[in-house]
Simulated assay, not measured.
Amino acid sequence: MATGDCVFCGCQVRSQGEHALPRWLFRRWEGQGPFTILVNGEPAAKRDGGTERDELPRVTLPVCGSRDPMDCNGWLNSTFEVAGKPQVRAVLDHLQPIEGAAVAAFVRWVVKTVLLYAHPLAQYSEIGHMGVKGSVLEVPGSALTVMRRTGEFPEDLTLWMAVVDPAGPSVGSPVVDRVCLPRIIRADGGVSDSSSATVGLSLPDGRTVLFQLLFHPLIDVVNPFESSGWATRLWPDPPAALDIAAHPVLGAEGRRELTSWFFVGGAEIGIQRGERWPDGPTGRALRAVEQGGVFPS
């Protein structure tokens, strides 16, 4: 059970909280166990020492419910689940192409789901406190408060989608230079770091779809997998149409490269008000001496 203050409105949560992966999504895997959860690529042990699970772990987050004035759980349902659920089923269960408003509803559902799944306060059943290293999005709490008030996602969130078949052939994958993202020192003295989370969901043909969400405050980035056509950018500006069955397929090596194409650890970069990296006077002056960085020109 998720306890604490609601991540959206701050009130005390008196219910079990919100399931980051909704119950209806878990029904896709009923009867398909046993499952093994990987943490940093290694099987995560259960409390009894085993690794196989009859059911996938639930992930809950402190979100207030219908007994509370704001009912943020109900807001999530009416804002994202109602419109997104039929599109998720069409894409993930039936590999159907979608277009227009259906794509927008699907993409908004995915962004919401990864945001909750990778939240620092998310609690996992079975694997408890272990979590998944590298899959925590350090989005400021104030951004979720604004999201609740306006219905808009935080700025500088980008979502990509890729399809993977580790056991099958793939045409190839790009030769990736890892992208080094700097630590941003804002004009107000605050510090902003980038972070990302990747969630994989199985497809009925045995492949996996990966959704990679990157939070990159005040930084403009170029994903080499998007540039070479192996990944599709879904947010911001969702595509007009989406056909997951026709999407290029990465192999196991491509998956490893996709999930590690960027890292945080570059120089601390001071950004003036209204400026972004790498554009702007500061970015242009320091870009030449930034070590290990691969940035758009």
Rank of each mutant, 00 (worst) to 15 (best):
P236Q: 08
G266K: 03
E268P: 00
A240F: 09
E253H: 08
P239Q: 10
I244Y: 02
F263I: 07
P236K: 03
G270M: 05
P248F: 01
P238H: 07
A267Y: 00
F262L: 12
G254D: 04
F263Y: 13
I269L: 13
A267L: 07
T259W: 02
G229M: 04
D237R: 11
W230A: 14
L258W: 02
A240K: 10
T232L: 07
H247R: 11
D237M: 06
F263L: 07
S260K: 04
G265M: 03
W261S: 00
R255W: 05
P238L: 11
E257A: 13
W230P: 02
L258Q: 01
W261N: 02
F263P: 00
G265N: 02
E253T: 14
L250Q: 01
H247A: 15
H247W: 05
H247I: 03
P248L: 09
P238I: 12
E253R: 12
T232K: 04
I244A: 06
A240N: 14
A240R: 10
G266D: 00
I271T: 09
R256P: 00
G270Q: 10
V264M: 02
E253P: 02
A267I: 09
A245G: 10
G229T: 09
A267H: 03
G254E: 05
A240S: 15
G254L: 03
T259A: 13
A231S: 14
G229Q: 08
L250K: 00
I244R: 04
S260C: 00
P239Y: 03
A231E: 05
I271S: 07
P239K: 04
L242V: 09
L234D: 15
A267F: 02
R255G: 13
P236G: 10
P238G: 10
G254A: 07
A246N: 15
F262R: 10
P239F: 02
G266W: 01
P236M: 11
P236H: 07
A240I: 13
L242T: 09
I269E: 04
A267G: 06
I269F: 02
H247T: 14
G265Y: 01
G251H: 09
A241L: 07
I271G: 05
L242A: 09
G254P: 06
A252V: 11
E257L: 07
V249N: 03
L234C: 11
G270V: 05
G229A: 04
I269S: 02
F262M: 13
D243T: 12
R233G: 11
A252W: 01
A246F: 08
P239C: 08
R255F: 04
R233D: 13
L258S: 07
E253I: 13
G254S: 08
G266H: 01
E257I: 01
T232D: 06
I269Q: 10
G266T: 03
F262N: 10
I244T: 12
G270N: 07
E257C: 01
L242C: 07
D237G: 08
V249L: 03
G265H: 01
A231M: 13
W230R: 08
T232H: 04
G251C: 08
W235E: 15
A246D: 15
A267P: 00
R256L: 15
F262Q: 12
R255P: 04
A241C: 11
I271K: 03
G254Q: 05
W261Q: 06
H247P: 06
A245K: 14
P236C: 11
P248H: 10
V264A: 06
V264G: 05
G266R: 03
W230H: 15
H247K: 11
A231P: 08
V249H: 04
L242E: 09
L258K: 00
A246W: 07
R255N: 11
